[in-house]
Design a protein around this nucleic acid. Structure first.
Lengths: 80, 80
DNA sequence: GACTCTATTTATAATTA
DNA sequence: TTAATTATAAATAGAGT
């Protein structure tokens, strides 16, 4: 899609953020589509380099925990 | 992509599994691409209707817990 | 940042083997 | 069934606003 690129870290910050924004939305869209059409539950989480939770996609049955004191993040799925 | 379809549950089992297989691999590919090019950590988990962990994508710092006795699954990210 | 445009590449539904 | 092929639609890099 678009001009052909090699997949490696985009060094230009502005360009990287633009690409992230574009790809994030389409990744979310595709996760939703496979969840619906294939009847699966999907969890998608992205953490930025600044360690912020950038995004998640769910079937409304996931929860994301972000403890502040330990270097651990949990995303839990309730399969009930 | 392909013939235009409405996004809804595919009722035909064979067709649904074929679609799942195709979409799963491209979703994983895209998750890896955004992780690399945008320097973010991504976690992607899919649970099948049979409650099996179908897939996950990571930066090698995620771990998936699958307790068998409780209806809860955890995907944990170590941000160290 | 957040949109728009579009040329180009990728993804994929349907089909065929 | 599982794997290619094909025809078509979607995603997106780059450029401009």
């Amino acid at each position: 899609m678009g001009r052909k690129i090699e997949i490696k870290k985009i060094e230009d910050i502005t360009k990287r953020q633009v690409t992230f924004s574009k790809r994030r939305s389409s990744l979310l869209k595709k996760a939703k589509e496979i969840a619906i059409s294939c009847d699966v539950d999907v969890l998608l989480v992205a953490f930025s380099p600044a360690n912020r939770l950038s995004k998640f996609c769910s079937q409304n049955r996931y929860c994301i925990y972000e403890p502040t004191k330990i270097p651990l993040r949990c995303a839990c799925y309730l399969s009930i």
